[in-house]
Design a binder for these strands. Structure first.
Lengths: 226, 226
DNA sequence: CCGATGCTTCGGACGAGAGCGAAACATCGA
DNA sequence: TCGATGTTTCGCTCTCGTCCGAAGCATCGG
């Protein structure tokens, strides 16, 4: 019984348009100040403050104080996965409607999912790695094989060895196939941004793959983008 | 922008305690009448009717009229996955609290997730099948290997060949590992219920594994339950 | 046909919660 | 120390949505 109540509370937190807008703005994994999130959601700072306090109390957001600013970010990859999943079912039930806006098309092509690459690019990357034997797919998820570890090493991409799974398949809401999450996914995403393989679109989670990036993904990972 | 609104609408539908209770009751994959769901949620029939209409309009529930009864069920496995995922994050943020009630323990041991086996039993089954080479794990998900098809055939478990994936890994919210969904998962679950390997607990998604079932899972699938 | 049962529609009452103005608090720069 | 900026707390209003009583449809059994 209490399970149901808690489930409803969690969903209800995401269910408010203002809070949903804030969570969505945070979906690219970066941290924003309370004021920025207030503007993103179109409400006054005091209103935003109340919502953010609720999300933090529920453990969905983490907060870090720096001077007179307070930076908020998504607390865990699981929260990000839920938000992506909700988009999946939302898109699913209205998928028949013909409204593929240009911005949505860019999102489908390549975007950031919390801290890793998603969209066509992310799925193609996952498929290429799996096809070349760089991933060991198991019942638990996925792990880098020896050749995969060597590949990332040769590309100077360092994957920190932490408790978090090195690889985790994450269901892509637009492609309905897995893309690479986990430490390895985050490391590749960081490297791709740092080396100019992909560029953030302003005010969006969408990414543009640069010509350099197209070459790098093809040569380094064997990714063939459509 | 509209994406955010839709996301919030979906979450908000799940966010109402009454609707959440109905969805939760339907999580075992069976269909219930409007009256039964009203009782399950603790509201009057007319209140339940309104909620059910909303869920159907949103595409989250499917409805089938039979005489003067109307049977409601979860519309798709994706909806079920979202509900399981919400439980996961909900359990995650309060996971430290030591409250493993007896009913929760039973749920963790074995339960039905929409139309297939989950919990320790489901995870052990998936691991056993994968370990014995009966599943081909790929980037897209999983498929029965030839030996897997043969195994199910020898056990008289028929897996219909439909559009739906024959196997699909589904993240288990209590075990945090995959269990077997898809056509094969549903077929095994149906067989397990029909042959008395597992028995439903009254008014719950929890399952009890019978002595017969323990032997059958061990002999047939090599499953070793803790 | 008729009553019984299951479900839905309509109307009004009630409460929860989102929103903002005003003011307090915290921190920075000078 | 002072004002400026970022954030939070308080008090209040107002809207939205849930809920139920009453009544209206549909379907079944006879």
């Amino acid at each position: 019984m209490t399970t149901i109540i808690r489930l409803a509370e969690t969903a209800s937190l995401i269910g408010d348009p203002t809070r949903a807008a804030m969570l969505y703005a945070l979906m690219d994994g970066r941290a924003f100040t309370a004021g920025e999130l207030a503007e993103a959601a179109g409400v006054t700072p005091q209103t935003a403050s109340g919502h953010l306090a609720q999300l933090v109390a529920a453990g969905m957001l983490a907060v870090e104080a720096q001077g007179r600013h307070r930076y908020f970010r998504i607390a865990s990859a699981e929260i990000g996965a839920i938000l992506e999943g909700l988009q999946l079912v939302t898109a699913d039930r209205i998928g028949r409607l013909p409204r593929p806006g240009p911005r949505d098309a860019a999102l489908r092509k390549a975007r950031i999912c919390y801290d890793h690459l998603a969209g066509e690019l992310g799925v193609a990357l996952f498929a290429a790695l799996a096809g070349a034997g760089h991933l060991r797919l198991s019942a638990d998820g996925a792990a880098l094989s020896d050749s995969g570890t060597a590949l990332l090493g040769s590309l100077d991409i360092e994957v920190p060895a932490r408790r978090r799974p090195t690889c985790r398949p994450c269901l892509d809401w637009s492609e309905r196939r897995h893309h690479l999450a986990g430490q390895a996914g985050a490391a590749i995403c960081t490297a791709a941004l740092a080396r100019g393989w992909v560029r953030r679109r302003h005010g969006s989670r969408a990414l543009d793959v640069t010509p350099t990036g197209t070459r790098a993904f093809a040569a380094g990972f064997g990714v063939r983008l459509p």
